[in-house]
Structure formats: structure tokens, C-alpha cells
Design a protein around this nucleic acid. Sequence first.
DNA 1: CGACTACTTGATGAATTTCAAGCCATGTGG
DNA 2: CCACATGGCTTGAAATTCATCAAGTAGTCG
Lengths: 258, 258
Amino acid sequence: MGSPVYQTAVQDHADAIIHAFPRETNPGLELAKRFTKRCETVPAGMELYAEGEQCGNLYIVTSGWIILHQILEDGRRQILDFALPGTLLGLQPDAGNEMPHTAEALTDAEVAVIPLNRLVESLRGNADIAWRFIAATAGALNVAYDSLTDVGRRTAREAVAHLLLRLFTRVQAQGGGLDDATIRFPLTQEHIGDALGLTAVHVCRTLKSLREDRIMQAGFGILTVLDPEELAEIAGANIGSIPYPVIADGPHLAHMAA
Amino acid sequence: MGSPVYQTAVQDHADAIIHAFPRETNPGLELAKRFTKRCETVPAGMELYAEGEQCGNLYIVTSGWIILHQILEDGRRQILDFALPGTLLGLQPDAGNEMPHTAEALTDAEVAVIPLNRLVESLRGNADIAWRFIAATAGALNVAYDSLTDVGRRTAREAVAHLLLRLFTRVQAQGGGLDDATIRFPLTQEHIGDALGLTAVHVCRTLKSLREDRIMQAGFGILTVLDPEELAEIAGANIGSIPYPVIADGPHLAHMAA
DNA sequence: CGACTACTTGATGAATTTCAAGCCATGTGG
DNA sequence: CCACATGGCTTGAAATTCATCAAGTAGTCG
């Protein structure tokens, strides 16, 4: 394992699985898009908004992965969250203020655009929509708190296990899995490191160890969980209580679409 | 410095300052309390709600400090946020679910209680209140993201500087300072460590270094910032953009008070 | 083919933890 | 008033985790 032979074997496996599922499907969000008049396509690597700039819009991710991050002066980067389809983006307590973080597409992505001025209007007389925004933001807060515990108080092995488990269950819960044990997984080891406060080198060693223990495999664009119980055990997580914030879609979005 | 002589000198100073300001004042929140029919007193060390239990209320802190934390099986603790007067507590995306963290009073504290069922009702037809909840939660998310960057990507010295600066400016912004350079500061070094993913021992050494550089002093219940510019420099922060989440008080709370 | 990115591995070093001891102020019971 | 325990802080020495530096392997893309 870890040898070239292992690598090509796994990569073939990955190719086979991915080709069997040519497109990422987001059944629920089809609805959202139907009611949303203005959508934007964000190619991989492009920023949706950047730290320091003002942003007059909210976004709801409809396809692809988007990362939120902060960067320190000397280039150190902290990834704050991974936004998947259904995630609300860009909400700030003070509408006129500068964004405190950057949102960058990790894969080609699509977002529904909601102008901020439209938001206040939508809130008025529509408690259901208001609640959806509150719930989505509270969900994102729970995710951030979980990440804080990962970074602050778990070892590299525990943190990596926990992060992968959280992303895995989140994708699976949305029906986005390739099969019961595997999901598309566009993160590099550097992304994992930047999310957990580790270096890519150390993530590499950590993943190797988890792989050798036959717990999971990550790479080549997919993540497959071989031993979910053991993964949860290492992560120190009760798998039932893993949060993922989704601003549920449906006809409600019609009111807010630009 | 660090000698017994230094300690007693500083402690005398602390005593003198604190006695000059016998009570913590929260001018704005007087209003809130007037409109809130049900308040609760939470003595230091007591839990407002605990991880795993259901909680049918929201709370707004009206006095004192409350910490939010998660604890791993083996006792490792991560402090997620410090709740000060004006902070909204207990909001969850799914009303019926278990709390994912614990809220514990760090000092004697008081909170205004808002039953959850009252919340939905208040939201209906009152976009202003809805917006206050959204803004407060989005603010807490910003704070969590800042903490994540502290823990993940800053050195101990940078992280401690940044945390102290954030707490300091937050208290000062609410007019809660004892004077321009000092605030009440009930955290132990262990609290600081648990907020930043460090041990109390290492926090001790880090504080010592900052103290020897004449940048700040913490201890004996107060924090005084001697060199704000240098502190911000070390923290790597543009001091203007430090977030603190407050659910603004005023007549609005009347609608929600139990 | 060269340049590039992601990943891998080894050797070395630094930041931080762990373990251990002691100090000081506070509180408590005899 | 003393003996004793306790909590928060301090300091030193050793151990560990993780970062840094460096080099090499594939695969991909032009």
C-alpha cells in the first residue's frame, strides 16, 4: 500500500465508479433553480466574494463545492467551511460591511443569487422564510463549533477522521453519494490541512495510516469509507448528531430570486 | 516581574481599580430587562443548558460571562465562545433537537428567557425581530470563524494576543470597561487555553512573554492593555473589523419576553 | 519534452505538551 | 489561631506531536 501498484489500482477503481455516475445529482435543488431567475456559474478557483470587499448579495449553492477561508498576511490559510449544494452563503450581521472571509469555488459551481435588499422585503410578512435563514445560519454555527473542537482539541488522526466523517455523512444525507460507501471528494490534502490547522505533509501521513488500517481511502476525487464504525470511533463522534446546514429549497425561494 | 513582589503590586492595583467601579454596568440592557418578564439568575459554575439535553428556551445574557463549550470523552475541553451581555444563546436549527454544546456561567450571570414557541410567533409579522435573530447568529458565526483561524493558523503568541484583543474591544464597545485600558476579566489561564487549543501551562508562558514586553497584563480578574497597537500587530488584526455579536436590546424584546 | 500539481517519504527541528514541583492566596474545620 | 486542603499561577526538564526542509514519483497539460 502506498506503492505505485496500489495507486493505479485505486485510481482505476475511482474511474470505474465515477463513470458509472456521470453527473452529480441534486434532486431537491432542481426545484430551487426552477424558481430562481438569476443564477451564476462559478468556475473552479474563482472567488464568489473576497475578504474585505462589500457584497450586496446572498447566495445559495446549487451545485459544486465552495470553500470559505481566511488568509493571514504571510499566506497561512484557514478554511472555515465547505459549502455544498443547499448551503446559504454571504449572510452578514451588518448589511453594509466588508466580508470577513473569502468564498472560492473548489469545483465548478453554481449559485442562486439573492440581492440583499430583496431579503428584508422577503422577511416581511413571511415568518417561514425568516426561520429558514435563521436555521441555516444556526446550522453553520454548529458546523463551525465542531470544526473548532477538531482543530483545538483533537489529534491529527482524530480531526481528520472527524472531518471526513462529517463531509461524508453530509453528502450522503443529501443523496449525493456514488454508492453507500463512497462520495465524490474534490479536496486535496492541502485543503484538509488548511481546514484542520495541519500541513499537507502531515495530512498525507495521517491519511496513510488510516488507509493502512483499512478505515478509509481518500484520493483521486473520491472518498470511500471502509469501516464507518471505526471511523466514528476514532473521530469520537456520535454519528447521529452530525450537523449540516441546508437552507431547504422549494417554492419559498421564489420570493427571493432575483 | 513574575516575582511575588510583582504579583502583589499588580493585585493591589487590580483591587484599587475594581473597588472604584463596584458594579458592572450594562446601560442598554436595563431597557431589555424592563420588558422581559422572566429572567433567570445563573450562579457561577452552573450550566444554563448542557450538551445532549433538549432546551425549549432561548436566552439573552443580561449580565455576567457565560462560556459555551464541548467536552470530549476523555475530558479535553474546547471553549467555543464567550457570551457577554447582549449575546443570544441557545438557538438551534431544529427546535426539537439536542443541544450540541454546553453553556456554563463563568461568573454569576443573568439571562432573559424566551420560550421557543414564543419565537415563531414573534417572527410572524415582525421582520425587524427576525432580522435581529439572523444578525446575532451571523455575528456569532463570524466570531467562531475568527476563533477557528486563531486556533488553526496562529501561533500561541498570536492567538492569545488576538483573543485578548477581541474580548477587550468587545467589552469596551459595550461601555463595560473599567477605564480605557482595562476591563474586568474573569478568565483563568485554563479558560484561555481551552478557547485556543493550548494548555494552561503554555498560556502561562505566553502571557508572561507578552507581559515582559509591556504589551498587556492579565490576571487578578482584570485585563489591561498597555500597548494596543503592538497587541493588534501581534494579533495580525485590523482592529476595526473585530466582530462581536449582540442582539440589540430595546422595546423589541417586549414581544418575546415570557 | 518541460512544467506543473498532487502526493509521498525521510531526516531534522521547533512548538507545544506532559510531568513534576513549588508558590501564594483563600477558605475550612478543629 | 493553626493545620490542612484547594485553586490558580509559575517554572524546569523531558517527551511528543507536528512543522519544515528536501528530494523524488506519478500523472496531466501545454
